[in-house]
Design a protein around this nucleic acid. Structure first.
Lengths: 136, 136
DNA sequence: TTGCAAATGCAATCGTGTTGCAAAACCTGC
DNA sequence: GCAGGTTTTGCAACACGATTGCATTTGCAA
């Protein structure tokens, strides 16, 4: 039984060949992959199915979705770690990668009267080490 | 002699009605504007010309181009950017409105080796007072 | 005022991402 | 194993943002 299939089962989604192949491709990639990247990496897959597979992986927490500098979505496998409110994210504007920082999230600010807080997102943007080397 | 025209001349680009109107719209806006925003703000302008005007403003340094979370380009006058770096934004998930909070953003966290910091965005999401009344 | 490079308008095109619907595949219970 | 209902897939069509090519107009400097 494949480890990727176990990941999918544990996340509560059905195990299908498409999901297994996409998740393995994401896990093997050094950088976040765009839809076009995956399409050329898995030429058999249907375009729309690929979008939906990616959406389902993001929805169950197995993948992360981010926007790169050109406005294209990029996806990456999220490790076993799944603490959404627990730490700060660094977004690379070059490759679209998301990195988890060790720093603690800042306390929620005070809101005007009647406002209701749902989510706090402390987003730090910049260039990751790898992209910084390519564009000095 | 318009101040906006002087800005354009100083930046080394030709002064045209389109550029003047777009730059004034960007300067007057409280948030970065998408192409669609500008199109409805300046209904007379041609779609493609608008793209090219924006590109030229970015190329000469008078405007900044960024990508929002949906992958759409947003433009802002380069002078106005610093205005909004100093405080926290609250985004209402009901009406999509953006509100500026008084609170100061937390200090930037420590980054891993080789990472370069460009922007810090402390984004708070929830329901604004008006939307909260409609959906209790 | 005139010449020419730059900017505009229009139509067509591309790329990314989404939606609707019928057929096929996955899982559960037997 | 096998039948059941639900999810997922594949296909076609669509929506939207953004870009390109080309003829025409415009800004500006000589």
């Amino acid at each position: 039984m494949s480890a990727t299939a176990d990941l999918l089962r544990a996340a509560g989604v059905r195990v299908t060949p498409g999901r297994v192949r996409v998740l393995e491709a994401l896990a093997a990639a050094a950088q976040p992959l765009s839809h076009a990247d995956l399409e050329s990496l898995l030429p058999d897959a249907d375009r729309v199915t690929l979008y939906r597979v990616l959406d389902s992986l993001v929805a169950c927490g197995l993948a992360l979705k981010a926007v790169d500098a050109r406005g294209v979505f990029r996806f990456s496998a999220s490790g076993a770690q799944r603490e959404h409110g627990g730490h700060v994210h660094f977004r690379c504007t070059g490759c679209g990668g998301v990195f988890c920082l060790k720093a603690a999230p800042p306390p929620p600010p005070k809101l005007p009267r009647g406002f209701r807080l749902a989510e706090v997102d402390y987003d730090v943007r910049g260039t990751c080490a790898q992209c910084a080397r390519h564009t000095p």
